[in-house]
Design a protein around this nucleic acid. Structure first.
Length: 326
DNA sequence: TCTGTATGTCAAA
DNA sequence: TTGACCTACAGAC
């Protein structure tokens, strides 16, 4: 179950292994068959992500839009050329988890589809299988724009652009400028609503790519109560929050997993991930790494919200009533 | 073999 | 606010 970092990795992987190649697109399961025909045989021009969505442009000016939802995942395989092209470490799977490619063996083309393969993309050198997406469809550019416009600023905008520039593609944007613009938009979105910040971070129209883990962890790291109305965040807190999210999500793109703890707080036995990766996510009842208070869990709007009631105490209410006035 | 759970989102009530 | 949906896997029987 991917948050934005997985989709940006996926976009990189697609750009690495398929961009500039003619691809055969099919739907072994059948549910994507009609759309697959519209792009099959075309060249995949480029791939990019915004928030939790992946877009691929094809040479006939049609676009593939994919949202992995809760369960979606890609499997990859291919020959040496294909694996060597990957800049993210030749994963077999991107989605909820990634598995290193098996070392040797001659590439004999894609395997018989196993299970419910919604979409299969095959190039000369390799293949990708998609299972369980909540969205997989072919769109015209105008429809792509509608989808993009629904999404708030993406804390990974800069990372994606930086990557593309490193490949020498002529994307015009300056990554730092994209992130600065994203920050201004985020701050503006916060100031426009009294909705608790914990809910705002899950609203893809206000900030895109953040999911349940990054929500919980970023609020903890910034010591912000999830219940605090968004428009009551100080300018300083909003700034800190945005740039912290940028930081931990860029780390996620680099590492392929979410690790939000600072070195000095990794105090549990066991491996860094997952045992020492989080401050609050799935740590309900356990002691806060910093203050020892039991981590709290509550279901809010159908999602599990984790936080430390001590480290993330809401700010002291200003004294109310006429007597307290200026 | 069965059940519960998961990093998500939408539509219906 | 609830249920539906898409799929795979861990853990309980």
């Amino acid at each position: 179950m991917p948050e934005g970092h997985s989709l940006h990795r996926l976009a990189r992987q697609f750009d690495d292994v398929f961009a500039g190649q003619a691809v055969q697109v099919s739907s072994p399961q059948g549910r994507f068959a009609a759309d697959a025909e519209r792009i099959s045989g075309q060249q995949l021009e480029r791939a990019w992500a915004k928030g939790k969505q992946l877009f691929c442009q094809f040479s006939n000016d049609l676009y593939l839009r994919i949202h992995l939802g809760l369960y979606g995942a890609f499997d990859f395989g291919g020959d040496e050329f294909f694996r060597g092209a990957s800049s993210i470490g030749a994963p077999r799977r991107i989605g909820e988890r990634e598995v290193a490619a098996e070392a040797n063996g001659e590439y004999l083309g894609p395997p018989e589809p196993v299970g419910q393969v919604r979409a299969r993309i095959v190039s000369e050198h390799g293949w990708a299988d998609l299972r369980g997406p909540s969205a997989c469809e072919v769109l015209e550019w105008e429809q792509v724009q509608v989808q993009l416009d629904k999404l708030g600023p993406d804390p990974l905008a800069g990372a994606a652009i930086r990557f593309n520039q490193s490949k020498g593609r002529d994307l015009d944007a300056d990554p730092q400028a994209a992130l600065e613009a994203g920050y201004r938009q985020f701050r503006h979105n916060l100031s426009a609503t009294r909705t608790p910040i914990g809910l705002v971070l899950m609203n893809q129209a206000l900030i895109s790519g953040v999911g349940n883990i990054y929500r919980a962890e970023s609020l903890y790291r910034c010591r912000i109560s999830p219940q605090l109305p968004a428009n009551e965040l100080s300018a300083r807190a909003a700034k800190k929050l945005w740039w912290d999210i940028v930081q931990i999500m860029q780390d996620g793109v680099r590492d392929g997993k979410i690790i939000t703890t600072w070195q000095e707080d990794r105090n549990e036995p066991g491996p860094l991930w997952p045992d020492n990766a989080y401050y609050v996510y799935q740590r309900q009842g356990q002691a806060c790494r910093r203050c020892g208070t039991a981590i709290r869990l509550e279901e809010v709007a159908g999602r599990k919200l984790y936080w430390c009631t001590r480290c993330q105490r809401p700010p002291r209410k200003r004294p109310a009533g006429p007597a307290s006035g200026r």
